Simulated scan of single mutants.
Amino acid sequence: MNYTLHQLIIFSEIANSKSITRTAEKLHLTQPAVSIQLKNFQDQFSIPLTEVVGRQLYVTDFGNEIAAAAKKILDEVEAINYKTNAFKGKLSGRIKISIASTGKYVMPYFLTEFMNIHSGVDLVMDVTNKTKVIRSLEKNEVDFALISVLPKKLKVNSVELMRNELFLVGGKQITPEQLAEGEHLLTKLPLLYREEGSATRNAMETFIQKNGFQIRKKIQLTSNEAVKQAVIAGLGISIMPLIGIKNELKAKDLQIIPIESLPISSMWQVTWLSSKKLNPVATAFLDHLKIEKNKIAKKYFAWTEAYR
């Protein structure tokens, strides 16, 4: 056997994604380079690691065994790197965070300084909808979750970062006369929703039900960015988080439709299981947040005050 760490990394990702294309994208390689390394790795075994049925790549039972062994080896290599940094007196390890999709406009600003100070720390950040964020938190798959509404069924601790406010938003096609109609536009124009499981969608539906609005037409899209582009194109209007539309408001591609009962307001919170024993990296990150969060929020998000 003469396989390399590079081949183990590539095969481990292939086993995870079941795709040469996605592996190439994630590892920033070309597809031919991934295919060559897979072939070179396979040549060292007399039993197939993968098979292609139709156009779909599958990992064999033997391949899954090798992938599990490869993961253990890669974890040990990673541990060696962390221990080396720790011996040098550097904070070292990995921090895993799952964030609700609109949290991508927030979390990076609260991470940057910490990551720059601690070069020995690696970051894994998963961006998904609220339902999946809560699931990863519940299964203890992450150190922290960034959410705006705390789960009722889990015992968690949290640190508040900043306000999350949702406004009714339309494209530049909305006339001054329509703007003056305010909430009545909700019953006249198509309303764009996020997918099931989205915290933004849950907030929208609660707001609409509470106020008794009769929606004329609903359109569902699966990301905040897709909703934003659809509103810009004039497909409809939507209730959206202010933090995600700064540039579009500035460019006048979007405009806020004034409604007395809006914005819907909550707090972005970094959350973790109460029973979780935080590692040194996670503890250091929490300490950093508690000290720096107000300064960071003021530096990067003071512009939101103009819309309140």
Rank of each mutant, 00 (worst) to 15 (best):
N224Y: 00
K252Q: 14
T222R: 10
P280H: 12
H28V: 13
N247D: 15
Y58W: 12
A69S: 04
S12Q: 11
I257Q: 00
L262E: 14
G236V: 04
A145V: 09
L221H: 03
N247H: 14
T112H: 13
P32E: 11
T187G: 07
K139S: 11
L179I: 13
I80T: 12
E165T: 14
M125F: 02
T30W: 04
N157I: 06
L57A: 09
G170P: 03
S101P: 02
E183M: 04
R308F: 12
R94D: 00
S35Q: 07
I20G: 01
I134Q: 04
I243S: 02
E195I: 15
L189F: 10
L221S: 05
A70V: 10
R135K: 15
K277H: 12
T112N: 13
V121T: 11
I174R: 13
T187W: 06
L91M: 13
F301S: 02
E195A: 08
I134W: 01
A79L: 10
K104C: 00
G54K: 13
L29K: 13
F45W: 14
I291W: 07
V34L: 10
I134V: 13
S19N: 10
H6I: 11
T102S: 15
D43K: 14
V142I: 14
W268K: 03
K130H: 06
T102F: 04
M1F: 01
I291E: 08
